[in-house]
């Protein structure tokens, strides 16, 4: 409770500010509407309520976003093109596919890098440099390029996700697999352990915390990659497409709802990786 109270206070403050800000931000349009309807001298409380229930508000009130999320998920048939659950599922499947392949690729590459000096020296500088490059900007082009040769749907999007989630995993795993200290490696040498044994009994367990820390970054960025990749193909569906069509049609409530679903997905995915991390770390005897 003592840990929850400050968070709840801040959240409440955000909610109050949000409702408060919605009034002046939507006021202009509401005044126009009221003038058209020949409504004069609207009391402030009524006016505030009006600004909180516009059709296409500049800033939708929280309850509008929540009811839109409700209407577009639970209240709607899941196969409907307007269902956010449907679009969320498209994004989620691309994210998970890309994340799984990205993590596997990252781990394999990290293993190669720590065991081979030449691949370490030739790959690592480029891997690190490529992190400074706005890879996400390439996303729509990759999707269109692959579409031109007949690859559409899930695969191009998950390629972007894979590409994005692979970087943090390589960097984290190289660090993790190298984290055993010299005396620990010397100990394995006194046992005359072979490379395989040293890897599975020392390096791999030592790298686990690093792997999960990277996976938390990886899954979050993987989702972002999937959403951005969707921006370039409006027919494919997904949360990115909902953002895009919402912005074309001025459907602000729809944008906010898609945004909240994306945020919720990210939170759940990161939390899942986080709990897997705690479970593995606890099994390996780490403290909390």
């Amino acid at each position: 409770m003592t840990r929850l109270l400050p968070v709840l206070t801040i959240l409440l403050a955000i909610l109050v500010i949000w409702y408060g800000a919605a009034v002046p931000m939507n006021a202009n349009w509401q005044v126009t509407l009221n003038n058209r309807a020949d409504l004069v001298d609207v009391p402030l409380t009524t006016f505030a309520q009006q600004t909180w229930s516009q059709d296409k508000p500049v800033l939708p009130a929280p309850h509008q976003v929540i009811s839109e999320i409700w209407n577009a998920t639970v209240a709607l048939d899941i196969s409907s093109k307007r269902s956010l659950a449907y679009h969320g599922w498209i994004t989620l499947s691309a994210t998970l596919l890309g994340f799984a392949f990205g993590t596997a690729l990252g781990v394999l590459l990290a293993v190669a890098i720590i065991h081979n000096d030449a691949s370490d020296r030739s790959l690592m500088p480029w891997i690190i440099a490529s992190q400074t490059i706005p890879i996400l900007a390439v996303a729509p082009m990759v999707v269109v390029g692959l579409g031109a040769v007949g690859l559409t749907g899930l695969v191009p999007k998950s390629l972007i996700s894979m590409y994005l989630s692979f970087f943090p995993v390589v960097v984290g795993m190289v660090k993790g697999l190298r984290s055993p200290e010299a005396i620990q490696l010397d100990l394995m040498r006194t046992y005359d352990a072979n490379g395989w044994q040293t890897f599975w009994k020392l390096r791999w367990p030592a790298a686990m915390p690093f792997l999960f820390a990277s996976m938390k970054v990886g899954i979050a960025i993987s989702l972002i990659g999937a959403v951005v990749a969707e921006l370039s193909n409006a027919s494919g569906g997904g949360l990115g497409v909902r953002l895009l069509t919402g912005s074309y049609n001025g459907q602000t409530v729809q944008i906010w709802a898609a945004l909240f679903i994306a945020a919720g997905l990210a939170a759940i995915l990161v939390a899942l990786v986080g709990s897997a991390e705690r479970w593995v770390n606890a099994r390996m005897g780490a403290r909390a």
């Binding site: 979050a220 959403v227 949360l239 912005s247 945004l259 945020a263 939170a267 990161v270």
Partner: peptide, 14 residues
């Protein structure tokens, strides 16, 4: 950890 980038369409409107 959130895809904050998604606020882009809202910012363009504002």
């Amino acid at each position: 950890a959130l895809p904050i980038i998604g606020i882009a369409p809202i910012m363009v409107m504002w």
